[in-house]
Write a protein that binds this DNA or RNA. Structure first.
Length: 296
DNA sequence: GACGCGTGGCT
DNA sequence: TAGCCAAGCGT
């Protein structure tokens, strides 16, 4: 018979109020200026990209495209180009598609409804709820890798979370405060704790506000194994080849490049061709009359 | 559920 | 120094 979970919300919310980093998307002025669009763009960029690398790109992006309709009015090539080195450039394409969908379906206003958000390109369980909560103040569980790690340790006494599951959402919803605003803060606080204290490799338990109720700590920090997938090797991978092709086209400043001038001297010519073909299939580049370009 | 998908800083 | 890691998503 499992004992009741201790109250995590009170210490987490207090800790967050005193210790939250001053990030752009947490400022009142940011919300007043960019509303749900600012939150949406920040969440897209933060999908698998570190906070410190996102900040300058987010500023530039929103200065250039302060509304969904502004982005939707330009070709996807511009989005892919300005995505620069943020990584996973499909996100730039999806963000552009989402902007078009927001313009066409929602009169240019980022929807507040989770199901409407989920129907947009590139938006899944995490991003939909993050927008509904952080832009519109609704009460939903926002569960990212940080939250899953904090809960795995504090409640399940595991060193790392298991594989992501829809059940994570229900489980976290069960420990959120009833009040919308408090719940929103706990969502942010739990992610923040995982990002800066309860980190994957070297947790700083000596400054953790919930160490006194942490099941993993009480159990003596057992290594319960890591259920996460290991990342495939990047050096020599198709992903590296795709990245190099796309960088070449970005560096060409949006102009077409003869296909034979792209990645000349790449060690594996078959891999080079495979990268180009898959980028075309993904819609990240276009081919015509022997030249490659970003998608128009 | 498992896989493919970028890029660069950190240990 | 060679992995490890980072506010996921779509298939």
């Amino acid at each position: 018979m499992p004992h009741r979970s201790p109250d995590l919300a009170t210490p987490l919310v207090a800790w967050y109020r005193a210790n939250a980093r001053d990030l752009p998307w947490r400022r009142d002025a940011f919300h007043e200026q960019y509303g749900g669009w600012g939150v949406l763009v920040s969440e897209f960029m933060l999908q698998q990209t570190p906070t410190t690398r996102v900040i300058p790109h987010l500023d530039a992006w929103l200065a250039r495209w302060p509304t969904p309709s502004a982005l939707a009015a330009e070709p996807p090539a511009e989005a892919v180009h300005r995505w620069a080195n943020l990584g996973y450039p499909r996100r730039a394409l999806w963000l552009h598609r989402a902007a078009v969908q927001i313009r066409d379906r929602h009169d240019g206003i980022v929807p507040a409804d989770v199901d409407a958000l989920l129907a947009l390109a590139g938006i899944g369980d995490y991003t939909a709820r993050a927008v509904a909560v952080f832009a519109y103040g609704q009460r939903h569980p926002v569960v990212d890798t940080n939250t899953r790690r904090v809960l795995a340790r504090a409640i399940e006494a595991r060193s790392q979370p298991g594989a992501p599951s829809r059940r994570d959402l229900d489980r976290f919803a069960g420990v959120l405060p009833a009040d919308d605003d408090e719940a929103a803060i706990m969502n942010a606080a739990t992610m923040e704790l995982g990002a800066v204290v309860c980190t994957a490799r070297t947790p700083r338990c000596e400054v953790c506000p919930i160490a006194h109720v942490c099941a993993w700590r009480a159990a003596g920090y057992p290594d319960t194994g890591d259920a996460r997938r290991k990342q495939a090797r990047y050096e020599g991978s198709d992903r590296q080849a795709r990245g190099a092709v796309l960088k070449a086209l970005r560096d060409a400043a949006g102009t077409a490049v003869p296909i034979h001038d792209v990645l000349t001297g790449w060690p594996d010519p078959l891999q080079r061709d495979r990268a180009i073909d898959s980028l075309i299939a993904d819609g990240l580049i276009e081919a015509s009359h022997g030249v490659l370009r970003l998608p128009r």
